[in-house]
């Protein structure tokens, strides 16, 4: 009953986002070991959710696919995830892409063991015939296949073996594999513990791999203001992190310890090289007023990859699930915009 009263009050605008006081529950999903999860940790520590009238409960997932599957059961309302699961979520369960959480093109990488690296770096085409361990249907799958295409090596000339990220690191450390597709922070672990080296990244292969902010379509339609408030907090947290690098680094370290994959100083330094975006940059990257936006183009390339691998025989049109409507709401609301753009 209390829930209905709260929702009713929200619908009547009795406590609009931007006004501290009563808080509306919202279920936020993410994967705790990722860099782009930092804003959730920071915002909670700083108690910023209350400032926009949200009372979040967090639903954590080890990877994007189970995260998207849980959308069908309404286990979460909004969240952040990888771009590949976001396309899958859009195709299967009407999950909307409403923002960009970071550019992870450089941190989805193909690593080679210390022994294999020199030969492969000198002649990347010699990768033909080798076995590559990777997590299929993920951003790193996209990065690795883009690397192969970049070198002119067809997928059919290598053996792609599906494994979780942690077992891939284990295989490289134990000498049972010489090539693995990894995303951060697992790539840092392979580099530190097995002296593996990055052979190629999505960025080096010329593709853009965004991490994205998502919302269930039904939830977003029913609660556009709450979704906008969520976005404002997320964007604000990155603005704060850029302005307070030391505090942000210690928060990331604490968040990763809590997430189970502690970062070394090397990993910590690498993580903060990833591009993240301000409200204006988000709006520019999602601007579809002169044709498909940048984000739509990137997601379109990822859809094509998923079609090629057979994961999605008929991917949805990007315009049907990539929308800047909620980010625009942040821009249009003076209080939310000021909050999102503030670095303090």
């Amino acid at each position: 009953m209390r829930r209905f009263v709260l929702l009713g009050a929200a619908a009547l605008g009795l406590f609009a986002p931007g006004v501290a006081g009563a808080q509306t529950p919202i279920k936020i999903s993410y994967q705790p070991t990722n860099y782009w999860a930092l804003p959730f940790y920071v915002a909670t520590k700083m108690n910023w959710w209350a400032k926009v009238g949200l009372k979040p409960s967090f639903v954590l997932f080890p990877a994007g696919v189970p995260q998207m599957a849980a959308a069908a059961a309404g286990s979460w309302d909004v969240g952040a995830t990888g771009s590949v699961p976001a396309v899958l979520g859009a195709a299967r369960f009407h999950v909307l892409t409403i923002g960009i959480d970071n550019d992870e093109s450089a941190t989805n990488v193909l690593v080679a063991s210390a022994k294999a690296y020199p030969g492969l770096a000198a002649n990347p085409k010699s990768i033909a015939g080798k076995r590559i361990l990777l997590t299929t249907n993920s951003t790193v799958d996209y990065a690795v296949r883009s690397c192969l295409a970049h070198w002119g090596v067809p997928d059919s000339q290598v053996s792609l073996v599906n494994l979780g990220q942690a077992p891939i690191v284990t295989s490289i450390i134990s000498g049972n594999a010489e090539l693995g597709g990894l995303w951060a922070p697992y790539s840092y672990e392979a580099m530190q513990k097995a002296h593996a080296k990055v052979l190629c990244s999505g960025k080096a292969a010329g593709v853009v791999i965004p991490g994205v902010l998502v919302a269930r379509a039904a939830y977003a339609k029913a609660h556009p203001d709450l979704v906008a408030a969520y976005l404002a907090v997320y964007v604000h947290a990155w603005a704060w992190a850029k302005a307070h690098p030391k505090e942000a680094a210690s928060m990331l370290q604490a968040a990763d310890v809590a997430g189970g994959v502690p970062l070394t100083s090397f990993g910590l330094k690498e993580e903060f090289t990833r591009p993240t975006f301000s409200l204006q940059q988000e709006l520019a990257l999602m601007d579809a007023s002169h044709g498909p936006s940048k984000l739509e183009q990137w997601m379109g390339q990822i859809s094509a990859f998923m079609q090629k691998t057979g994961s999605l025989p008929k991917p949805p049109a990007t315009a049907s699930y990539v929308t800047d409507a909620y980010m625009k709401r942040v821009g249009a609301d003076a209080k939310l915009r000021a909050f999102a753009e503030s670095a303090n």
């Binding site: 696919v65 899958l88 369960f93 299929t136 249907n137 073996v161 599906n162 295989s171 999605l312």
Partner: peptide
Amino acid sequence: LVGSFYGLGHVLSEAQQDI
């Protein structure tokens, strides 16, 4: 799950990945 190329367990694992 231990790095298979084929098999019914592999099918289930891939189908799960594809939702």
